[in-house]
Amino acid sequence: MLILDLGLNALVTGVVLGSIYALVALGLAITFGLLHIPNVAHPAMVIGGSYAVAISNSYGMDPLVAGVLWAIPFYALGVILYEFYSRSFESRGRGNTLQSLTLFFGISLIIEVGLVVAFGTDLRSIRAGYIGHSLTVGFIVMPYRFLIPAALAPVVIFLLWLYMTRTNTGLAIRAVAYEERALQICGLDPAAIKRHAFGIAMAMAALAGAALVITGPIDPFAGRAHIGRVFAVVVLAGMGTIPGTLVAAILIGVAESFVMTFLSPSWAPGVAFAILLATLGLRPNGLFGALR
């Protein structure tokens, strides 16, 4: 009976954690999954979002409201960053993956150092009415600080999926990495589409930052623990799928949770890497990857 209880608890915890992972990976599902830009700075951007939300929260703003509001300046930052990226690499035809990786690795470090200089290395947390309370159903106890960000993920993913499938700009974002010339002969400017998509990805970093800082305190380097996992989520889901991100993230969350419960918490960080390697070896297109 104890095993069953433990198992059920691990399952619920895994689903909740996975849902939060999906939110953290969502921006990368756009930049890497759709635009094919290896944005390793995404987790650092998410932590940047967490700090932005924490600042607003210190003036009494609800963290989720702050996340939504910060999404707007983050969008603008993303547009500027993409412009910088494309001017330094893509437009000169020198955009190889290694150079892009180096650039985004550098950006990641700059964000971290910037956060250290501005806020120090102390843990930073937020205040909200629901933090410290839990929902109890039977023997399962789930703190609201996990439940609320987890509930946000499906909503955001559903809205993003609608945008990507029902709007002209959404179709263009899905097309741009495959056939730029198709966009041009459809009367659309590929550079503008990519800027916009990168902006949306950064807006997602603000939302994910809010979610992450609700779950617990963060420090400037908190993004590092997520780098392997966000790539694992996007690759397992399959490049270019938005709803697949949720499924893949939950699978990884559940796997981690079971390893933590039944093996050892110290193995949990390896789970995502194992899944990443297994996916690349066994099913390189991921679970829901578009053909080709």
Binding site: T167, N168, L171, A172, R174, A175, Y178, E179, R181, A182, L183, Q184, I185, C186, G187, L188, G240, A290, L291, R292
Partner: peptide, 30 residues
């Protein structure tokens, strides 16, 4: 394109990961 000159290019340049209808809507929604 937006001045009214459309193109049927060499190699067709369709978007492979979009459906037939989505390819049309991509052009039509410009």
């Amino acid at each position: 394109t937006n001045l009214g000159i459309a193109s049927v290019p060499e190699g067709r340049r369709l978007v492979p990961n979009l459906t037939v209808e989505e390819n049309l809507l991509l052009a039509g929604g410009g």
